[in-house]
Design a protein around this nucleic acid. Structure first.
Lengths: 222, 222
DNA sequence: AGGTGTGAAGGATTTCACAGCC
DNA sequence: GGCTGTGAAATCCTTCACACCT
């Protein structure tokens, strides 16, 4: 149904970066930005910025640039950040706890509604970051997902448990998985998966440094 | 000096993924893998796998596939994982502590040699994950970097402190920065930067899910 | 002047398809 | 039969350059 088919994935990745810079620009009370300024902040060319934005509509004003407030509103709309999206977290280990306390999610209008773990010694423990909540058993997964209409989940469990958790999440009706386990997961069609492997990330960096590191590059993303 | 110039960045990104699957294959006592199997595990085409590997040499055996042990050794060599690489961490907050206790780094032959923080109430505290070590002041940065020949650093500080930390790291002689602060950093040439923004990552995922999520894609990852 | 939106050109990466080897 | 390595084709993405607007 969406004619949003032909949008390059890299363009989508840059969208969040543009938005982040726009927000700091707004905080400085600048009313407009040019594609030039945006491009330098994110590390791409100005033509790239205009092309990227053009995939989603015409937001600019010739001779002026982009009105910051307007563009922020449009981009939030496009990214879905204008409405609360509920998220659950599976895995209450070190990384899981760090993610719970991460304020960035809330700022982007994500609402962490529950935390799950398989470890019997953890189930029932209070979650300081989510007042009134407690760590839940995975048995509660289907119910919580249905009750809160949760579409997104973060996986922060050990590698050997990750695939099973992913399967349970998909079965419970979650549509998007953000996986931090160092493991390649298989998902069935209809489930979107994004993986971040911290060690792999560092390995990439080390390789690039070894190469000779000609120019500083914002390499992988975000 | 390296004719390793023309290697596509995406190919390099996939290298770590191939290696990870090879290691699990090895654990299963399989002696060889085909590009077909590797490709399915990582979510690319088999031609892609062969092209990627071919950038670095000829490792395959026609009719057989790739010998697992051999390929692992070569890939570790290529990625530099055959020798210990020393890393420091700046920022001992929630995320920093999670990173300290993350075993994946050690497994990939990274050695975390010191943890720094600017918070006077944290400096001097012991680091349970690094026996005998304590959280250090950033004043010690140049000395530690020089003494241990540290080339890589992980930044896990709040956004508003990140640019200053990056500058100090570069000045101290660190060559590669892995940044977790939700902030676009500027670095001078010769410094390689890779950024991971957890909130942006989730935002990307939410967007893809909203699109309609036609096919499961290992999207941005690692 | 300053700035966007966009067709067209250029480059880069991926896929195809097949020769050659085990 | 199975499988790799690789030129050639196809596709995808980025940059150029300029018409047009303010």
């Amino acid at each position: 149904m969406a004619k949003s088919e032909g949008i390059p994935a890299p363009a989508v990745r840059r969208l969040s970066l543009y938005l982040r810079h726009l927000e700091t620009t707004q905080a400085r009370n600048h009313a407009t930005v040019s594609s030039r300024e945006l491009s330098r902040a994110v590390g791409v060319t100005d033509a790239q910025v205009r092309k990227d934005l053009a995939y989603f509509g015409q937001f600019g004003h010739p001779g002026i640039g982009y009105r910051v407030d307007e563009l922020i509103a449009r981009m939030r709309q496009i990214l879905g950040a204008d409405q609360v999206r509920r998220v659950i977290l599976v895995g209450a280990g070190n990384l899981g706890r760090a993610l719970m306390s991460y304020r960035g999610f809330r700022k982007k209008n994500f609402d962490l509604v529950a935390v799950f773990d398989n470890d019997a010694t953890k189930i029932g423990l209070p979650t300081p970051e989510l007042p009134g909540e407690r760590i839940r058993s995975l048995d509660d997964l289907p119910r919580i997902v249905a009750e809160h209409d949760v579409r997104l989940a973060v996986i922060a469990v050990p590698a050997q448990a990750a695939q099973a958790v992913a399967d349970q999440l998909a079965a419970a009706g979650v549509r998007g998985l953000l996986n931090f386990a160092p493991m390649i997961l298989q998902t069935r069609p209809g489930i979107t998966l994004s993986s971040v492997d911290l060690a792999v990330q560092l390995e990439q960096l080390a390789f690039q440094v070894n190469l000779g590191a000609e120019g500083a590059k914002i390499s992988v993303d975000s």
